[in-house]
Design a protein around this nucleic acid. Structure first.
Ligand SMILES: [Mn+2]
Ligand SMILES: [Mn+2]
Ligand SMILES: [Zn+2]
Ligand SMILES: [Zn+2]
Lengths: 142, 142
DNA sequence: CACATTTATGCAACATTGATGCATAAATAT
DNA sequence: ATATTTATGCATCAATGTTGCATAAATGTG
């Protein structure tokens, strides 16, 4: 990680009115260094025991609340998280894009440039959010 | 539940080469009586302590393997399950449809007649399955 | 129907995941 | 430099999920 990215991390935190702490900086670094979504247990694996499990839960929740990260639905127990690339904020998540989960490598990535299609719901249903998770084989694994 | 449905439950189990047990019949009854997806804890709530937690886990896994039920991704920890309506089998799940989660009542339902749209993935990605979960307000709640 | 064989269940024990209260440490503002 | 605010770590607990093994129930055969 270069200093440049480190500077932008502190900027991100400040922009969300969050104080700059080691844990928050480290977790954001891990997100930036990763090319896919991370789940809770990833942080223990990647960062060792440098911070407490509870702190990780609280940090992820804070980042979610502030619109710094978003969660990705799964059919296993673990929730995955990834950085929001557009400028989401506390009450305005608008980083809408589809997700791809590779069955080979297990990696989940954000497809930022793939359009979310229109869904025609039956009468009476109002859509607020659409989650699309495509599973298959990714570019690297095929 | 009428006897008719009860008969069809035993037929379902036999068609999947599963022995007819109280737990399996009861869990299938609960699925049929429910108008939405069920999560693990639902069974304890609906059926009391009539069977062991472990048995529920194993039964749901068996039903998944056999294509009797399918799982629905969520961003909370609980996985939800619903009956496959088309005739899925052990190695051929083809009950593809989108899911709707109501933010008011919390219910998750299968929209069997709503088409899954085409997704145009970037080059190099092969799609095997598409999960679409729309959240918003359902017909009853609006 | 009785019996042998196969399979599912229940229980105990354990592992993992997540939440909360509270004292202390760290970050920020003055 | 210090006061105030906020985040962290630890202890504890709750919920969720897994595994091994003995027993109970279901199925197939005579
Ligand atoms: Mn994403
Ligand atoms: Mn469904
Ligand atoms: Zn891959
Ligand atoms: Zn509703």
């Amino acid at each position: 990680m270069g200093n440049k990215t480190k500077a932008s991390i502190t900027d991100m935190l400040r922009a969300s009115n969050l104080s700059i702490t080691d844990t928050r900086v480290k977790i954001l670094e891990l997100f930036m260094d990763s090319n896919g979504a991370l789940e809770h247990s990833s942080f223990e694996k990647l960062a060792g025991h440098s911070f407490d499990r509870v702190t990780v839960y609280r940090t992820l929740q804070t980042f979610l609340d502030k619109g710094i990260i978003h969660s990705i639905p799964t059919t296993d127990t673990s929730i995955r998280y990834a950085l929001c690339k557009s400028d989401c904020s506390e009450h305005d998540h608008h980083d809408h894009h589809i997700h791809f989960k590779c069955e080979e490598c297990g990696n989940t990535i954000c497809l930022d440039d793939t359009n979310i299609p229109e869904i025609h719901l039956p009468k009476g249903y109002a859509a607020h959010n659409i989650d699309v998770v495509v599973s298959g084989v990714c570019k690297q694994c095929k």
